[in-house]
């Protein structure tokens, strides 16, 4: 059952194990399309692990087992026959904590995804690259130097390049794993502005340990916690960001948000 707008996730009783150790257990949540969902919680609470479930990047870490049901617009993403991870990842892009552009030109970085998925015509690629760079708010800075090596950009520009690179495959969802934590405050602000603009067209799930940032940019917030080292982490609650930050339903959320731990 696919409805418009697209880009929703439904998680039901999801757990993740590294080898024999269960890291995250029993997470159920709905991710609303074309909104920003922030995953917050102290470090080690499984935010990034849960994020990687959504594009099956845990598969690449080896020895990681994901259980439960994850539906992307109603489609079970754990079933390779329904949705190959390759197709899933084209539709669910990811931006990493540290900027990680490929060691090639700006243009080639952005064109990498479309080329991977079969776009060959030069004119078409040019258009996709321009559009992606515009959406990532980088176009004006680099439009005259697309052949420049990506490593010559500043850290903030590199991260926006990575956003553009992810946008170039026209994903419905963008996963962001602390995308601004390695950047200076001004670059960080630019990334936040970009996110605010992007949520009109894509669903964004962002992991952050910066609660002000979560409060500023997200529509909904999920709070995760690992209460003791011998128990797996879990979801404490998820809800409207304004409500979560002003009137949380759970004591533990309140303590975390008011800075009593974490």
């Amino acid at each position: 059952m696919v409805t418009n707008p697209t880009g929703s996730f439904d998680l039901e009783n999801v757990s993740v194990a590294y080898g024999s150790e269960t890291a995250v257990a029993g997470v159920s949540m709905h991710i609303v399309p074309q909104s920003v969902t922030a995953l917050i919680g102290p470090s080690g609470c499984g935010k990034s692990t849960l994020l990687r479930c959504l594009n099956r990047m845990n598969d690449e870490l080896g020895n990681v087992k994901v259980e439960g049901s994850i539906r992307f617009d109603g489609l079970d993403i754990m079933d390779n026959r329904l949705l190959d991870p390759v197709d899933l990842r084209r539709r669910v892009g990811q931006v990493f904590q540290k900027p990680n552009p490929f060691p090639m030109s700006i243009y080639d970085n952005v064109a990498y995804g479309p080329k991977t998925h079969g776009t060959r015509a030069k004119a078409e690629l040019d258009a996709v690259v321009e559009q992606a760079l515009k959406r990532a708010a980088l176009w004006n800075e680099v439009k005259d130097q697309l052949k420049k090596h990506a490593f010559e950009l500043s850290g903030g520009q590199q991260q926006r390049l990575c956003i553009a690179r992810a946008l170039a495959t026209m994903p419905e969802v963008l996963l962001m794993d602390e995308p601004a934590s390695a950047l200076d405050p001004i670059s960080s602000q630019q990334i936040e502005d970009t996110i605010a603009e992007l949520k009109k067209s894509v669903t964004i799930v962002i992991v952050t340990h910066n609660m002000q940032q979560a409060a500023r940019i997200s529509d909904r917030t999920a709070f995760m916690l690992r209460e003791s080292m011998d128990r797996p982490a879990g979801l404490i609650e998820i809800g409207d960001t304004r409500v979560m930050f002003t009137n949380p339903g759970d004591k533990r959320t309140e303590s975390y948000i008011t800075g009593r731990f974490g």
Partner: peptide, 20 residues
């Protein structure tokens, strides 16, 4: 991270190796 960036764009492992 570079491998993951390529895989997260939907590139297969082989393409990641060849192109990146």
């Amino acid at each position: 991270d570079l491998r993951h960036a390529s895989l997260a764009l939907g590139a297969t492992k082989l393409r990641t190796i060849r192109k990146v």
